[in-house]
Design a binder for these strands. Structure first.
Length: 572
RNA sequence: GGGCCUGUAGCUCAAUUGGUUAGAGCAGAGCGCUCAUAACGCUUUGGUUGGGGGUUCAAGUCCCUCCGGGCCUACCA
């Protein structure tokens, strides 16, 4: 039994995530976690909310709430939506947890002990009106290069020129609009990633099986220009993990917090501790997942994320772990995703463009979304959500191919044999051919799931559903029944067993519908099949079943048009 | 500016890493079935693989070039 540690990139706290965020990390991570569990692996599946940083403070201020209260509320909202989408986290933690505070401070202390922290005094813009330092992008002004009057302090969006905030003409705070700005000196800690560059480079070189998207981004950062740069890991903010060296104060760093990208990945570890603390377990319980000296040697650690997160997971976080000098578990495989676009443009949290998790669940159950998103996951390039495509895929794949199969088999049986698995008759060459076909497809399905080839896995699963319809059409029990009831019984008994098998195999993609199939078949055995032949023998003759409600309803043209227009504008 | 990814049938995607006649699903057309959510099955139309050039016995795959789409470029996270 393998042990698999799975983490999904942790969603930022400042609002409800859209479907693009979902399919880029949490959903495929859940697919993989469910698959591994079904196969009998021991799985630890971790996610959390990423709660620190300037955007959280601003979102809280906008909502008129203290930031801690705002984050607590938004965490519950996001947690509820995760449950709505059936994301099977073992722990959905919070980066603001005491566990993460302690662990982040611990890591900083270890890095300092090992000489990987440098103190740098630099100049930053301070806004007197806002009472805070402003990150570069929160300073606006006129671009010295092109004259654009809404250029940001890091870059002009109009002419794309890289800027320093002090380059701006007539700079003002993007938060308040105040021009009462001054440049102040402030001291910050830098993680000396450059000193770990060669080790990171060699480590990435080993990962020839990683997606190109993952390694090419890492390589770019390692080799571009002067190579991997040191990174500031502290900020002049109130909301975050206070800068400490382990348990000890850090002279000169009073009132500062760690940068959100320093503490966020550490939350993967801290959330596992949150999990064990909550269960009243001792430290061994979480350390056996994370410490190679405490049993994590045989753990396979897989991360899921959108491409924008790749540099932090391939470089900064590994630098933190390696630099600590402790035997922490490094990631074994990074599955990264491109972006999902929405109907000709980008999903946008800030502009409220697209479909958001809460809206999606208001419209349709989770399985509909899970199936479409996973079967169209942006693995090789950016992909696009359109309502036409969504309607067509869901209606065809779920309602027609799978749902209707369940319906036609159970209803036929009820009318001819009653609501028990019929006995009598024998299987023949046609059934052997079906078993051979399904066996081949099961192998392919498992291979794709093991490789986390999401789209390929989904099409193989769909092909197994379609094989049921092909078999039924050819076997034609409605005709056979007129001549030979026992022969028809054998066909239907096998078909009912197919429903049970689909319930087992489809669960990683569509857990609710799978549960319905298994419940309707009265299946006690929901174990992952070892071979198709015996799996199709699991339901014995005489076993009672029920005819389920239609598993999936169809999306009508009217609904599609309604949703199309409802979500075309800006979210209010 | 630099780097990376990408362009294959009307649409969404494959193609065992250079190997025979480029394949699936959807949509379209025809036929069949009547158990079923007007569902299902079978057959079938459809491609100068973005354009051009090159390497090779052999190119969707490698090289050059042009055109289009996207992402990243380190203080948003």
């Amino acid at each position: 039994m393998a042990r698999i540690l799975i983490t999904s990139a942790i969603p930022y706290i400042n609002g409800i995530k859209h479907l693009g965020n979902l399919v880029g990390s949490q959903l495929p991570a859940d697919l993989y976690a469910r698959f591994c569990r079904a196969r009998g692996d021991e799985v630890m599946f971790i996610c959390a909310t990423d709660e620190h940083g300037t955007p959280a403070e601003l979102a809280a201020a906008k909502a008129g709430k203290p930031v801690a209260e705002y984050c607590a509320e938004m965490h519950e909202v996001q947690k509820g939506l995760s449950e709505g989408f059936r994301l099977s986290f073992d722990k959905f933690g919070r980066s603001s947890s005491p566990q993460n505070h302690a662990l982040t401070q611990y890591f900083a202390g270890r890095l300092a002990d090992n000489g990987y922290i440098e103190e740098v005094t630099e100049k930053q813009v301070y806004s007197n009106a806002d009472g805070r330092f402003l990150p570069d992008r929160y300073i606006e002004g006129t671009c010295p290069n092109c004259g654009y009057d809404k250029a940001r302090g890091d870059q002009c969006e109009n002419c794309t020129k890289q800027l320093d905030p002090t380059d701006l003409i007539d700079p003002r705070s993007a938060i308040s609009g105040s021009t009462d700005l001054e440049v102040r000196e402030t001291k910050h800690l830098y993680l000396r990633q450059s000193a770990l560059k060669d080790r990171l480079d060699a480590w990435i070189d080993e990962k020839s099986d990683w997606p190109v998207l993952t390694t090419s981004i890492a390589k770019k950062w390692l080799h571009d220009g002067d190579g991997l740069q040191d990174r500031g890991i502290t900020r002049d903010l109130d909301w975050g993990v206070p800068v400490k060296k382990g348990d000890a104060d850090w002279p000169g760093m009073e009132g500062k917090v760690f940068y959100v990208w320093f503490d966020a990945p550490i939350e993967y570890i801290a959330a596992t501790k949150e999990w064990s603390d909550e269960k009243g377990l001792d430290d061994d319980a979480w350390q056996r997942w994370w410490r190679t000296d405490k049993g994590a040697e045989d753990v396979r650690y897989v991360q899921f994320m959108g491409k924008d997160n790749v540099p932090f997971h391939t470089l900064s976080f590994p630098a933190t772990i390696i630099g600590s000098g402790d035997p922490w578990k490094l990631v074994d495989y990074i599955k990264s995703f491109n972006y999902l676009n929405y109907d000709g443009g980008q999903f946008s949290t800030s502009q409220g463009r697209g479909v958001f998790m809460d809206q999606a669940l208001d419209i349709l159950p989770a399985d509909y979304w899970r199936w479409w998103l996973l079967s169209h996951a942006p693995e090789n390039s950016d992909s696009e959500f359109t309502w036409e495509n969504f309607q067509a895929s869901v209606n065809k794949d779920l309602a027609d191919v799978l749902g209707n199969f369940v319906s036609r088999v159970t209803k036929f049986c009820r009318s001819k044999f009653g609501e028990t698995v019929p006995e009598g008759g024998e299987t023949g060459p046609r059934e052997e051919a079906l078993i051979a076909d399904l066996s081949k497809r099961l192998d392919a399905y498992q291979a794709h799931m093991e490789a986390i080839d999401v789209r390929k896995a989904s099409s193989e699963l769909r092909a197994m559903w379609a094989a049921g319809n092909e078999y039924l059409q050819e076997a034609a029990p409605w005709s056979v029944f007129k001549e030979d009831e026992a022969a028809a019984a054998a066909i239907i008994r096998l078909s009912l067993n197919l429903i049970r098998l689909y319930g087992v195999l489809s669960a990683p993609f569509i857990p609710d519908a799978s549960a319905e199939m298994l419940k309707a078949m009265g299946a006690e055995d929901a174990a992952w099949p070892k071979d198709i032949a015996s799996a199709l023998d699991a339901l014995p003759a005489g076993q009672a079943f029920t005819v389920p409600e239609n598993l999936f309803r169809k999306i009508s043209d009217d609904e599609r048009e309604d949703w199309q227009s409802r979500f075309s504008g800006v979210r209010t």
